[in-house]
């Protein structure tokens, strides 16, 4: 190397040289956008539960998950020791009962995925990569969707296992659990969308959490109140239409239509049921669309 080192202090332009120390750009094969998106989804999913983050950020998601699973475990215990001939709570009904925890989980973890990059400006690092901004938005949303699904599906799995182990009718249980899983997917789609759009709109964490909860819980509260009053007045059609206006009431309505759960003013008639599904899916699609637009704006800014 000695011969390649030029003497110090020479400011003669002709003799300036940049030494080739052997650093060279990476020329090997590169993974495509799909692989980038996949790893982004996976990292986001882990981050939603605090995995790969500090110990303190694991506390909240796992506390919520634990609280959410507790009733299912208790039910499983009762099934094991008392031996009932049916589950004391329906698969689909479970999520409706613990919807507060579900809402808090989505509301508190959505900012983890959507707010930080925007608030700290690190979003530019993602958008400077080959991944298009739309893919980033969808990947983040998918992470939240997966996390929400874990939250929704685990209790169903526990209940299903308890039901099978106590030798309840397999075909009945499988059918009911299947319906519950389908409903869980529909609910998760819309919750992830709503949580994501609010968290990317307001990057102040605490505020995004309250705004999400306010939207989910207040809308559900208003709908429930209207449904209760309309039902009491005998105008079931009004009650059914009112159910279209919040994710939780949509879930509850479809649950009433598809399972034997006893709910207030479930949609009657194929048209109404279809409207419930369309609104639920449409809401998620609209949110994803808004997220894509949001990040496209960010990318062009």
């Amino acid at each position: 190397m000695a011969e390649s080192t030029s003497p110090r202090g020479t400011d003669d332009a002709g003799r300036s040289v940049i030494h080739d120390l052997g650093y060279r750009p990476y020329t090997g094969p590169r993974l495509g956008s799909t692989a980038i998106a996949r790893s982004l989804v996976l990292t986001g999913f882990r981050n939603a539960f605090g995995l790969g983050r500090s110990g303190r950020s694991k506390v909240l998601p796992f506390l919520l998950l634990g609280l959410n699973l507790l009733p299912a475990l208790i039910v499983a215990g009762i099934m094991a020791f008392v031996g009932l001939d049916r589950l004391p709570i329906g698969y689909a009904q479970y999520a409706s009962t613990t919807q507060v925890l579900l809402g808090v989980f989505v509301a508190s973890q959505a900012p983890v995925l959507f707010s930080r990059d925007l608030r700290h400006g690190t979003i530019a690092l993602y958008l400077a990569r080959p991944l298009p901004s739309a893919a980033y938005a969808v990947a983040r949303w998918l992470s939240l969707l997966l996390a929400t699904l874990v939250f929704l599906v685990l209790p169903v799995v526990i209940l299903y296992a308890a039901a099978l182990l106590t030798e309840l009718d397999v075909s009945d249980q499988t059918r009911e659990a299947g319906v519950a899983l389908g409903l869980a997917v529909l609910l998760a789609l819309s919750l992830a969308g709503v949580g994501g759009i609010i968290a990317s709109w307001s990057t102040r964490r605490g505020f995004a959490v309250v705004a999400t909860i306010a939207f989910l819980v207040i809308a559900n509260g208003v709908v429930t109140a209207v449904q209760g009053i309309a039902d009491g007045e005998g105008s079931t059609r009004v009650a059914e239409v009112a159910g279209l206006f919040s994710p939780y009431s949509l879930y509850r309505g479809l649950m009433g239509a598809w399972t034997d759960a006893d709910t207030l003013a479930p949609p009657t008639g194929a048209g109404m049921v279809a409207a419930y599904v369309v609104v639920l899916v449409g809401l998620s699609a609209a949110c994803v669309g808004a997220l894509v637009a949001r990040y496209r704006r960010e990318a062009s800014a």
Binding site: L60, L67, T98, V100, L101, G103, V104, A107, S108, R205, G206, F207, V209, V210, I213, V217
Partner: peptide, 16 residues
């Protein structure tokens, strides 16, 4: 985490 704790208090503790 005041917001989340507060939400859990009102919605979960007082509510559920």
């Amino acid at each position: 985490h005041a917001v989340v704790v507060g939400l859990l208090y009102t919605l979960f503790w007082e509510g559920v």
